[in-house]
């Protein structure tokens, strides 16, 4: 292979690219420990003042809890629906399979803003008012295509035979699904769940449009931004980042170990 020396421009580019990618994250985290009122240089030394302030901010903590609740429930629903849809499309050859598949994937190409407006108008017509529940519905709508795509990509021929075998041995549909297929699909179900969770956790525009009093964390952070830069936003941001990283990291590790890397 090529020698290490000849690769040095490549390594340099890699280092530069990674610093570009991580620069804002690092700055954000550093200045969340700022001892002062502005999250800009000079850095006055580490302090946990702003974290303390953040945890005393009731509105922020409420929104954090709201975010967690919405993220977990909406992702659970998405993963379940995505799994059922993927299963039936992969092994039960329903009519219009291609059309259904297209309908499931197509929304990936529609902007969240447009989906948000569509939901706002239609939930209004259906008499569902702006609430945390509406936000949950919104997140199910935006994350379902992704969950379906991830889970569907992992259904292979090997499972098709097992599916048939289970039914030949007398398992009912429900038994096959719950006791055979689901356990075998665990890694991709977990990955889909994790990705949906992080996306819902960060999602702003739909949460902003569909909520009124019970807002989610990104909405609160956005509101705090109007007051200008403060290290408290940094602290909240660092928390958001840390949780996202953990969940995405977990998903990636499980995906890598679980089966063929596809995403």
């Amino acid at each position: 292979m090529v020698s290490r020396l000849r690769n040095s421009p490549a390594y340099l580019y890699l280092a530069l690219a990674l610093s570009f990618i991580y620069l804002p994250v690092v700055i954000l985290v550093i200045f969340s420990f700022q001892d002062g009122v502005l999250p800009v240089p000079p850095f006055n030394g580490p302090s946990l003042e702003w974290y303390q302030k953040m945890f005393e901010n009731e509105r922020l903590i409420d929104s954090l809890i709201n975010s967690v609740v919405v993220a977990i429930t909406s992702s659970f629903v998405c993963t379940l629906l995505g799994f059922l849809a993927a299963y039936s499309l992969a092994y039960r050859q329903p009519r219009f399979a291609k059309g259904i598949q297209f309908a499931l994937i197509a929304p990936l190409t529609v902007s969240y803003l447009i989906i948000g407006i569509g939901l706002l108008v239609s939930l209004n017509i259906m008499g569902i008012s702006k609430s945390l529940f509406a936000v949950g519905i919104g997140h199910v709508v935006i994350n379902l295509p992704l969950c379906f795509a991830i889970i569907y990509s992992q259904f292979g021929d090997h499972l098709s035979n097992i599916d048939r075998a289970a039914r030949d041995l007398g398992a009912s549909d429900l038994q096959t699904l719950v006791r055979v297929i689901a356990p075998m699909m665990k890694p991709s179900l977990f990955a889909a769940f994790c990705l949906a969770t992080t996306l819902s956790w960060d999602e702003f525009i739909i949460a902003f449009l569909l909520s009124r009093f019970e807002v989610t964390l990104p909405v609160i952070i956005f509101e705090m931004l109007r007051a200008g830069l403060t290290p408290e936003v940094n602290a909240a941001g660092t928390l958001v980042f840390a949780i996202s990283f953990t969940v995405v990291g977990a998903a990636a590790i499980v995906m890598m170990m679980g089966s063929r890397p596809k995403l």
């Binding site: 990618i21 991580y22 804002p24 994250v25 700055i27 954000l28 990705l195 992080t198 996306l199 960060d202 999602e203 702003f204 990104p218 952070i221 956005f222 931004l225 936003v233 909240a236 941001g237 958001v240 980042f241 996202s244 990283f245 995405v248």
Partner: peptide, 12 residues
């Protein structure tokens, strides 16, 4: 970082 924290990334 692509998968994480949309609002916060712009802010940072």
């Amino acid at each position: 970082p692509f998968w994480t924290a949309y609002v916060v990334r712009s802010y940072s």
